[in-house]
Design a protein around this nucleic acid. Sequence first.
DNA 1: CAATTTGATGACTACCGGTCAGTTACTACG
DNA 2: CGTAGTAACTGACCGGTAGTCATCAAATTG
Lengths: 228, 228
Amino acid sequence: MGIHERKEREREQRREVILNAAQKVFFEKGLQSATMDEIAEEAELSKGTLYLYYKGKEDLYLAVMIRGIETLYDLFKEVIGKNDGIIMTIQKLSAVYIRFFREHGNLFRMFHYYQTPQFHKQVSEEILQLCNEANQRIWKMVVDLLRKGVDEGVLRSDLNPEENAVILWSSASAILMRMDTRREEFKQMLNVDLENVLRKSNALLLESMMTESSRKQFQSALFDHQPS
Amino acid sequence: MGIHERKEREREQRREVILNAAQKVFFEKGLQSATMDEIAEEAELSKGTLYLYYKGKEDLYLAVMIRGIETLYDLFKEVIGKNDGIIMTIQKLSAVYIRFFREHGNLFRMFHYYQTPQFHKQVSEEILQLCNEANQRIWKMVVDLLRKGVDEGVLRSDLNPEENAVILWSSASAILMRMDTRREEFKQMLNVDLENVLRKSNALLLESMMTESSRKQFQSALFDHQPS
DNA sequence: CAATTTGATGACTACCGGTCAGTTACTACG
DNA sequence: CGTAGTAACTGACCGGTAGTCATCAAATTG
């Protein structure tokens, strides 16, 4: 009796149709201005049906975001899988994150929006849990890389990988976010190009996390080289 | 004929009454859940009147935020005014920012929310302009401090003060924000205490911005000392 | 083929941001 | 004063939206 399996499959497909529709509308309008009616129309379903698959608008938004985290996860995984050496890999991750921001700005913005406490309150426990798990996977991957850096003697052993991961990631995210909303403002106000600032910030932090010996090895490469 | 002046004064007072009411309600409910009716009731005015003084809910929200920027500005100004030496002052600014986050978390959250592009679109040009000006003042103050650091030979002259300001501030803001929403999550997931991470991140960045000579002078103080 | 379960629907409700015609309070002036 | 004119204020109302639920339709079962 494969009926159950088929129904399960159909249910998954519906969820995906809805998710795609939601993504499209959210990207075009943003969370506030997007309406459930619009999403329903885009999905060629009635509004009521959406609520059979997702708890509400915010849950749907988070569900789209989770797919985004997974996209980024795949990109990161690919880079790390190449085994290019720790320092090079970190620089590539940073470049990939910037590219992700450029090519999937809408998803990146979601990551940022997700940080607001107000948003957290409007979302169901279940989806929040899923989100945490997706987050965890990607963080762990980065932490593991940094730990390997310590083990190999490339990164200072007196700084712990978990903390370094948070530091590197946070500073990159914050500058990218500013770039998204206020690049021009900063150009005019302080005459700085935020993309440049981001590169310098990464270089500064990475350099200060490296051991004396590896610093010598990579010296000039840090500031000048731009991995694709 | 002082009538005009009196009216002007009364208008200012009304604006302030509304602003205080809005602040109270926004702090309790957040932007989304706060309603204009509630704010009107808190201000003991009718809803229509609010719109005689502010263009809309989002403008009102930004107006509250601008006062927050000014509060932070005053705190920063006080610290800088003490002329304690550049490095010490930077550390104190960082401490003040953390204290601001603790004591005025709601205002801090507004700064973060302000970054979302969706929000930018819902706000009037005028208030955005005011916001830029308030922002500008505080940024310039920090940049001037860092520039003085370069002039005095405490900070590296090959890094420019504007960029350094953005780097320091962004990384601090990002970590504080994470702390606000997801401190527990990070404690469990990576076993890191974000407040500690913030201190390390500041120390790391500051150290890497310092000249060789001043680094020697301050060595251990960077990591251990916690200015009040 | 009838009974039952599952899934989908869209009219409906409650609520909210913003408006505006009407009211009130204040000022100017004869 | 009293009245015309102005400025400030009000709250009923409107359009729009998230979320619900009684009803219907299709699929499944026995």
